[in-house]
Amino acid sequence: MASDYDDVLAGLHRLAGRLGWPEPRALQRLSGGASQETWAFVAGERALILRRAPRGVPVTTSTQGIGLVSEAAVIEAAGAAGAPAPAVASLLAEQDGLGPGYIMDRLEGETLARRIQRDAAFAEARDGFAQACGAAAAAIHATPLACLPTLPEADAAAQLDLYEAAYRGYGAGRPAFELGFAALRRRVPAPIPARLAHGDFRLGNLMVARHGLAAVLDWELAHRGDPAEDLGWICTPSWRFGAIDKPVGGIAEVGPMLEAYWAAGGDRRVTAERVRFWTLFGSLKWGVMCLTMAKLFESGVDPSVERAAIGRRASETELDVLLMLKGLL
């Protein structure tokens, strides 16, 4: 850990020298995932975030992420289109010795779901949450495709194929999953023009400040797809963090989110029914992701207790799929 810290600090010194920035200080590690590391630091008066590959080594086994260089390009394009996204300060260069990644502004706000849902400090943000999510999604989806790097494209049918293939690959004969896939197959919506989809638009990836939504974070799953996907994902029961009565992140209702989405120029074919399809899909998708975690753990690729625990969350998604099919959720 200590040498990791020293390596990052040395790399940031090289970067600051290259860009003529003040000396970096107050470095602290925020998180380390399987696909990226996040560090906070300060240069002069500017609070910044470093996002880089784990230990600076590009991830080659990732099946989904678009890579940090594309991620930075997507954030810049979406931000230019008016989406609430953090400003990218600089891409990392090879001579920085930090591996691929980028530096972005560190924004003030909260990402912890339970605090956003409950703390008195966020009461005003909660009041406007549905509208803020609708407007932010509309802005993301309005990003001109010509301004984007090459991204994967997958509509509803393609994503069903993808996740069902993963499920079958695990050899898991789980009746609730089978029923979920079969029900979704019968409900696939007619395709509408593909837009930039954030791909992980949910509580946890939304930076919320006292007055409202400050920024949408974690763009590594961005792709071209059905614009209703993002609005369905934020309603997926697992992302309501216990407040299941309020579909939009456990905070708000779908109706006002859609009204705001349309008012901000979002495609009117993104209807409540289309969003419901993607919410049901969201539970099944998260379920397959939990099965993936279980496999990573069992195969020894990632023997961590965290991976093991998430593996056991597949049953929550089965429950949600069944409750949604029965009209109880």
């Binding site: 009746p175 609730a176 029923l179 029961p237 309501r240 216990g242 407040a243 299941i244 056991r312 969350r313 049953s315 929550e316 089965e318 429950l319 949600d320 069944l322 409750l323 029965k326 959720l329």
Partner: peptide
């Protein structure tokens, strides 16, 4: 299936809100 799956969730995540 609801009965079967709810029993699994009560073992794996008894505090999961959808169980209500």
């Amino acid at each position: 299936l609801l009965s079967i799956v709810a029993a699994r969730v009560r073992i794996e995540q008894p505090g999961y809100a959808s169980l209500e």
